[in-house]
Nucleic acid binder design. Sequence first.
DNA 1: GACATTATGACTGCATACAAAATTGCAACC
DNA 2: GGTTGCAATTTTGTATGCAGTCATAATGTC
Lengths: 227, 227
Amino acid sequence: MGAADLEEPQAGGRIVRRSLQEDVAVRLRDMITQGVIPAGARINEVALCAQLGVSRSPLREAVRVLAGEGLVELVPARGAVVRRLTMKDMADNLAVLKALEGLAGRLACEVATDAAIAAVVALHREMMDRYAARDRLAYFKLNQAVHTAIVALSDNAALVRAHEAIQSRMRHIRFIGNAGPENWAGAVAEHETMIAALQARDGEALAAVLGQHLDRTFERVKGLLPR
Amino acid sequence: MGAADLEEPQAGGRIVRRSLQEDVAVRLRDMITQGVIPAGARINEVALCAQLGVSRSPLREAVRVLAGEGLVELVPARGAVVRRLTMKDMADNLAVLKALEGLAGRLACEVATDAAIAAVVALHREMMDRYAARDRLAYFKLNQAVHTAIVALSDNAALVRAHEAIQSRMRHIRFIGNAGPENWAGAVAEHETMIAALQARDGEALAAVLGQHLDRTFERVKGLLPR
DNA sequence: GACATTATGACTGCATACAAAATTGCAACC
DNA sequence: GGTTGCAATTTTGTATGCAGTCATAATGTC
């Protein structure tokens, strides 16, 4: 898993040099969302180094980046621990997410170009195809991509960053929630409504349905949390 | 400068073990907000290590944390660069901040205890004292503390974190804006209105005045930005 | 048998060493 | 005059070593 991503060939674009610690950071984020490293677990440096085939320096530095993002917590003399979300944390994050996506929705309807909206719609359609094929992992990734893309329509980098920070913290819960027998059809229907509001450029409606969608998502994954 | 902070003695509190990289991170944040390391500047590791009297490991790891927070940018093979805010970045951040503080204001009026509100009012009064004494640095710090405290009243950790992340990115602009001859009295008056709304537990009013305050703050520091 | 104490092992934090890449300076060339 | 090629130096990225700290198991005492 983790392959078959949505990377563009970027023929003429700027050349990208990547450092080892960046790759490690990406891998660690994936491992956390997929539960390979469970919430609350300590990160054993030497063990992970052996597994990933890197030395401790790039791993430690990658972990520090995740700490800054709030994905892990640094405990002195005890290393890094994957942050565990309580029910309240989840609710808190969702409240913030609602505010952010609401703002994003309103801005998107105001400033996005038709082409950009069309691109999101295309993403949505691809997601629907995956739904039709019952490809859960692909659906999950495209679902996240759609939300990220809608926020990106706002053309507000700070908003994108804040949104991504919160999303990455909740991604694990969503990941396991995605595997369960929740109301998949319901979520899909909400997405249809979202896209309709976006195409109509009705910011208020989009903000409202995004909020609703988040509330219901909360309901869907609620049972998976401690306390 | 940087001394005379508002740290509690924490006599009975839990013992705090601090690592070197944490201290370095704190120092770096201060250096960035105060412009000791200017926006857009590369961070020279060996030079900073010599200045701070630490080796490269803790410095690099601290820098990685700041990168995760979005304060600096990691450029492969070229180290870390202090993120530079364009006018648009500033506007973007403010839009998000408005959404966050609006949410915080509404929540605060709903859930905060009277004692907690009283503590914020006390902070506000101390800030007013500093204003009366024209102590700009102390005023600046207390001003930030008041905003942080109001957000903290919401009892929403995710909100606090998101707010802090954005605040820390704008802190430098505010710092230099604080030194200039802006409309200090106006800002102070807005703070009075804020506190009044808080004491009245009028969430909508508080959200509105927080938004206004942010807009005007933007006006005040607008001229200090590139482009 | 339960509890306090000590000893052992594992792990993190920091420092340092080495390798690879980039910046700088200079000279040659078009 | 400006650009290009090259070499020297600086700087970053990665690996490794060592000391301090924490967790756990073993030991001894009541």
